[in-house]
Deep mutational scan, measured.
Amino acid sequence: ATNIVGKVKWYNSTKNAGFIEQDNGGKDVFVHKSAVDAAGLHSLEEGQDVIFDLEEKQGKAYAVNLRIK
């Protein structure tokens, strides 16, 4: 899926990971530091509006192509 709108639920820069809550009510999506880095960002803030694509690896959904809304 592409161009999904959501809000950062939480992001821990020590653990280099967090979750994004989908505005469409879907399951929360894992976001890794690699996606944050690829977006040219240093970190994510709780409640921040984002747009992202979903990629599945080994049955788990990940946020990729992250951008700030």
Rank of each mutant, 00 (worst) to 15 (best):
H32L: 08
G25Q: 06
Q48T: 10
L44E: 01
H42V: 12
G18W: 10
Q58W: 14
A38Q: 10
I4S: 05
K33C: 08
K7S: 05
S34D: 09
G47Y: 04
K60V: 09
L66G: 00
N16R: 15
Y62R: 09
F52Q: 00
A39D: 02
I20G: 00
V29W: 05
V64Y: 04
V8C: 03
E21Q: 15
Q22L: 14
A63R: 00
L44A: 01
N16A: 13
K9I: 06
V36G: 01
I68H: 04
K15Q: 10
H42K: 13
G47A: 05
K69I: 14
L41Q: 05
V64T: 10
V50R: 00
I20E: 01
D53V: 03
K15C: 12
A17H: 15
K69N: 11
K33M: 06
A35L: 03
V36W: 04
Y11W: 13
I68E: 04
D28Y: 10
L41F: 10
N24M: 10
L41P: 02
V8K: 00
K69G: 11
A1V: 12
V31R: 00
L54G: 01
T14G: 11
V8T: 02
W10L: 04
V8M: 03
E56T: 13
D37I: 15
Q48V: 09
W10N: 04
Q48I: 09
T14L: 13
V64S: 06
G6N: 01
V31N: 00
K60G: 07
I51Q: 05
Q22W: 12
L54W: 05
E46R: 15
E55V: 14
E45Y: 15
G18T: 02
D28V: 10
G59T: 04
L54V: 12
S43E: 10
V36F: 05
N3Y: 05
V64G: 03
Y62F: 11
N16S: 11
V5M: 13
H32A: 08
Q48A: 09
A35H: 05
Q48L: 10
F19Q: 07
A38T: 07
A38M: 09
N65Q: 03
E45A: 12
V50Q: 00
I51E: 08
K9P: 00
A35D: 05
L66W: 00
Q48E: 08
A1T: 13
Y11S: 03
V50S: 00
H42Q: 12
N24T: 09
L66V: 09
K60M: 10
L41G: 03
A39S: 11
L44C: 02
N16W: 09
D49Y: 15
E55F: 14
K27W: 07
G25N: 08
K7T: 08
G6V: 02
G47W: 04
V5I: 12
L54Q: 04
A38R: 10
N65R: 07
E45F: 15
E21Y: 11
I68N: 05
D53A: 03
K69W: 10
Y62P: 03
G26W: 07
G18H: 02
V8R: 00
K27H: 10
G59E: 06
G40D: 06
N65S: 03
A17E: 10
A39N: 03
K7F: 06
S13A: 14
V50W: 01
A39M: 07
E46K: 15
K7V: 08
K69H: 12
A39F: 02
L44Y: 01
E56H: 13
A39Q: 03
V8A: 01
F30I: 06
K7D: 00
D23Y: 15
Q58G: 14
G6Y: 01
D37C: 14
K27D: 10
V64D: 03
G26I: 06
G6M: 01
K57L: 09
E45S: 13
K7N: 04
S43L: 10
H32W: 05
Y11A: 04
H42L: 12
D53C: 03
I4M: 11
D28K: 08
A39G: 05
L54D: 00
V8Y: 02
T2P: 05
V8H: 00
Q48D: 10
G25V: 06
I68V: 13
G40N: 08
Q48M: 13
E46T: 15
S34E: 08
V29F: 05
K27L: 10
K27P: 15
